Measured scan of single mutants.
Amino acid sequence: SSGGSSILDRAVIEHNLLSASKLYNNITFEELGALLEIPAAKAEKIASQMITEGRMNGFIDQIDGIVHFETR
């Protein structure tokens, strides 16, 4: 797709992000992006959206560029 990722790509990214949230206590956007094979800024945006929508527990430290995952 030309304008970003398809629905399937997005679903795969979100699935992998949720998997990462179970493996890590926290991770930088750079590391997360590398893990998900997407730019760091996109990793931040998707993580932020999932947390806001209540689909993933955690919070974002924008100063240090880190996602902190919280286990249920």
Rank of each mutant, 00 (worst) to 15 (best):
E31Q: 09
F29N: 00
N57S: 08
Q62H: 14
G65H: 09
G33A: 10
T71C: 12
I51H: 01
I60F: 03
A41Y: 10
E14T: 04
I7N: 14
N25H: 12
N57K: 13
G33R: 02
I7T: 13
A34R: 14
H68C: 06
I66F: 07
A34C: 06
L23E: 07
A47P: 00
V12I: 13
G58I: 03
D61I: 05
I63H: 10
I7Y: 13
T52D: 15
G33H: 02
M56P: 02
I7K: 12
E44M: 14
I13M: 07
S19N: 14
T28M: 03
L8G: 11
E70V: 10
V67K: 02
A34M: 11
L8K: 11
K45F: 13
K42A: 15
V12P: 06
E70A: 09
G65T: 03
E53R: 03
L36E: 00
E44A: 14
K42S: 15
F69Q: 01
H68W: 13
Y24N: 04
G58P: 00
G33N: 01
D64V: 10
H15P: 03
A40N: 04
K45G: 08
A41D: 13
N16R: 15
E30V: 12
E14P: 01
P39D: 12
E53S: 08
L36G: 00
L35D: 00
R55H: 06
I60D: 01
T71I: 10
I46A: 04
G33M: 02
N16L: 14
D64N: 15
S6R: 03
A34S: 09
E31C: 07
E37I: 05
L8T: 11
F59S: 08
K45E: 15
S21V: 08
D9C: 06
L17P: 00
S1M: 10
I60P: 00
S2F: 07
A41M: 08
T71A: 11
H15C: 07
S48W: 13
L35E: 02
N26Q: 14
E30A: 11
F29V: 06
V67L: 15
E31F: 07
L35F: 09
D61W: 04
S5T: 11
H68D: 04
E14F: 04
S6Q: 10
I38K: 00
D61M: 05
A40Q: 06
L8E: 11
S5Q: 12
G33V: 04
G65N: 08
G3D: 12
Q62V: 14
R10K: 10
G54F: 04
F29H: 00
N25K: 15
G58A: 12
S19D: 09
S6E: 11
G54N: 07
F29W: 08
K45T: 12
I38T: 02
L8I: 13
M56C: 03
G65R: 12
D9K: 06
E70H: 12
P39A: 06
E30L: 09
L36I: 04
N25E: 11
N26R: 13
A20E: 02
T28D: 03
N25L: 12
I27F: 05
M56T: 02
M50T: 01
S2W: 06
K45A: 14
I63D: 09
V67M: 10
H15Q: 14
M50N: 00
L32Y: 00
S48M: 14
V67F: 04
I60R: 00
I51E: 00
H68S: 06
L36V: 02
L36R: 00
R10Q: 15
A40R: 06
S19I: 14
M56R: 00
E14R: 03
T71S: 11
N25V: 10
I63T: 09
N26P: 06
I66E: 05
D9A: 06
R55P: 02
V12F: 08
N57F: 10
G58N: 01
S5K: 05
I66V: 13
G33T: 01
I60W: 02
S1G: 13
I27S: 02
A43H: 01
G54Q: 05
A20H: 06
Q49M: 09
N25I: 11
G65S: 07
A11R: 09
G65V: 03
S6K: 06
I60Y: 02
L23A: 08
S5L: 11
E30C: 05
I66K: 10
N57Y: 10
M56N: 02
S1I: 12
A20W: 12
N16W: 11
I51W: 02
E30T: 11
L8A: 14
I66G: 04
L18K: 05
A11V: 12
L35S: 02
A11S: 08
S5P: 14
L8N: 12
S6V: 13
V12R: 14
R10W: 15
F69E: 02
L18G: 03
A34Y: 11
L32F: 03
S21F: 05
D9M: 06
A40G: 07
L17G: 01
N57V: 11
G58M: 03
I63V: 13
S21Q: 05
I46L: 09
I66H: 06
G33Q: 03
L35H: 04
K22M: 10
V12C: 07
A34H: 12
Q62F: 15
A43F: 03
N16A: 13
N57T: 08
A11D: 13
A40E: 04
I38N: 01
Q49T: 08
L17S: 01
P39N: 09
G54K: 06
D64G: 15
Y24I: 07
S2K: 07
I63S: 09
T28V: 01
L35N: 02
L18Y: 07
L32A: 01
E37T: 08
M56S: 00
T71L: 09
N25W: 08
I7E: 15
P39K: 05
N25G: 09
I27Y: 04
S19K: 15
A43T: 03
N57A: 10
K45D: 12
F29I: 09
S6W: 08
N25M: 13
E70G: 12
I38G: 01
E14S: 03
I51G: 01
T28R: 06
K42L: 15
V67G: 01
S5D: 14
K42E: 15
L18R: 06
A11E: 14
I38Y: 01
M50G: 00
Y24Q: 04
K42Y: 15
